[in-house]
Design a protein around this nucleic acid. Sequence first.
RNA 1: GUGGCCAUAGUUCAGUCGGUAGAACGCCUGGUUGUGAUCCAGGAGGUCGCGGGUUCAAGUCCCGUUGGUCACCCCA
Length: 513
Amino acid sequence: MSGKSKPTKLQGPKGTRDLYPTEVLKRRYIQNAWRDASLRCGFDEIEGPTFESTELYSVKSGEGILGELFQAYSGKSPNEVEQVQKTGRAPYALRPEFTPTLARMYAAHAKQLPRPCKWFTAGPYFRAERPQRGRLREFLQWNVDFLSDNNTPDGRAQADTETMLCCIAALENLGLTHNDCKLVAGHRGAMEHLARIQGISEERSQKWMQLIDSRPKMSREKFIDHALSQGFSEQDVAELEYTLQSLSILPPHEAATRLVDFMTQKMSVTIDKTASGIMQDIGTELESIIYRMSTQVPEEWFKLDLYIVRGLAYYTGTVFEALADGERAVAGGGRYDNLIELMGGPPTPAVGFAMGDVVLGNLLEDKGLMPEGAELMEAAARPQASIRPEAFVVPNGDEDNEPLVHTLVANLRRGVENEDWLSRGNRKPWHADRYRVRPLHARVSYKSTRNLGKLRADAEKQHAKFFVEIHADNKVEITDMDKRESITSDTHGSFHVDPSAENYVGRALSALC
RNA sequence: GUGGCCAUAGUUCAGUCGGUAGAACGCCUGGUUGUGAUCCAGGAGGUCGCGGGUUCAAGUCCCGUUGGUCACCCCA
C-alpha cells in the first residue's frame, strides 16, 4: 500500500451474504430442521464437491444453466488459460445444483449401493443470476433424493410419497402449517400424454410444458397471448382448460380416476394400446400417491393441481412444489426416471426435490417463526435427530396390516404434540414442551418379502435399534435389536399403533431410545 | 440479459426552491436512583457509495460506475 492512496473498502461480491453471529444461528436452525426431517425419514447424508467439471453440467443442462455458471480454473497451466480466453469456458464450475453430482456419485458406485438409495445433502450452491427477493448468487440448498429400482406404479408412488412427506416434515418441524404453505403436485407424464392427445408433437412439448407452468402467473388473456406467441392455438388452450377444469372441482382421488378414464378412452380410439397401458399405470400411480398421502399427513397439506408441470425438461412423472402466498416456491422437485441413465449411470428411476434457505428464511420471518435472542440460541442447539434408526417397522403376516405400517411410520416420524402446547396461543415450534412423544427416526423395509427373518435381517443391516412388528388388532411388539430380546407385555404393557392411546408404541420407543 | 426505485452517523431514517449536516436509537463519560433496569447532563462519531459534469455554490441537478432492492426472463 502506497501510503498516499487510502485503501478502498472491499465489499462482498454481489448477491452474497455476510453472516454475523445471529444470522449464523438462524441458518443453523434451518439446516438442523432439514437434517432432522431427512434423518427421521430414513435418508442418509452425503456430500459432494462444491465445484465440478463444467462438462458435467453441459451434458444435461443446456443453455439455461450454462449461462448462469460461475466458472473456475486453476491458472496452473498455460493452455488452460488459453482455453478460457478462446472458448469463454473454464474447465470447472461452481455447482449450481446437486442433481448432476448425485447422478455422478450414484453411477460411480451403483453396483455396491443399497437399493433403494435414499440420500440427502445440504450445502452452498452458486448461480450467476441477478439477485432479487428469494434469490441470491450464493445460497444454501437442501436436496433429498430417492433412487430405487422398483419401477412399478406402486413402487413409484411409495417413493414419491415418502419424498414429499420428508419435505412436509421439514416444514412442520419449523412450525409451518397447511395454512401457511401447501404441497401441490402435478404429473408431468400425464400432461405429456394429454399433449399428445391434443396433437401437440413431442418436439414442441417442452415449450408447451413451460407454457402450462406459467399459467398461474398471469391472467387468462395474457396466457392466451403468450400461448399464441409460442406458436400454439387458442384451441389448444381451450382443450387444456376443458380437461383440467372439469377435474379441478373433484376430490383428488376422483380427479385421478377421471383423468385416466378420459385419456385412455381418447387413446383407445385415436392412438395405440401401449399408450393407454402407460396411462393406466399413471392412473394407478396417482391414485396410490393420493391414497398414501391421505393416510400419512393431514389432508389439507396436499393438493393435486395438474397445472404444476415445472419448467425443467427432465421430469417424467410426479412433479411438486411447496407453495406459500406471496413467495416464490419454497421447494420444488419431481420424478426424473431417465436422468441417471442420461448421465452415464444404470437405468434408475428416481424422485427428489430441493429447498433453498432464502425463500424459506423469508417465509419464516414473515410468519414470526424465526426465533430471536435467547430462544434462538436454544433453538439452534436443540438435540438433533438420531442418525441411527430408532424403529424399524414391519407388518406381521396379515396383508391388512401393511397400510398401517406406513401410517405408523409417518406418526413415529412426526411425533405427538402436547395438548398444552397446541392450545397455547403464542406457541412456537422451538418451545421445549412441544412434544409429548418426540419424533423418531423410523424406517420401513423395501423388500417385497413377508418373511420375518429376512425383514429382521434387513433391520439389522440398517443397524436399527428397535424392531417393531404390527400384529392383528393394531397391537405392536417391540424387539431390542442390540440385546436381541423382546420387550414383553409384562414389563411395558402391550403397545398400540394409535398415537392417542395411553400405550402408544411411539411413547414406549421414545422412552427406550 | 431488460426495466423501476434506492444509497446521508454504528443502525433506522429526515434534509424544503441548489446556499458545504440533522433526529431517534445505539455507543462513551459524568451525575441521580436500592444493581447492568429508570431519569438528567455532556461527548465521540459523516470525503452525504464511488468517479466525472453543470454552477459563484451540489447531499440536492445531469452522466457514468458500484452495490442494494423489486419486477421481467429463468428456475436446477
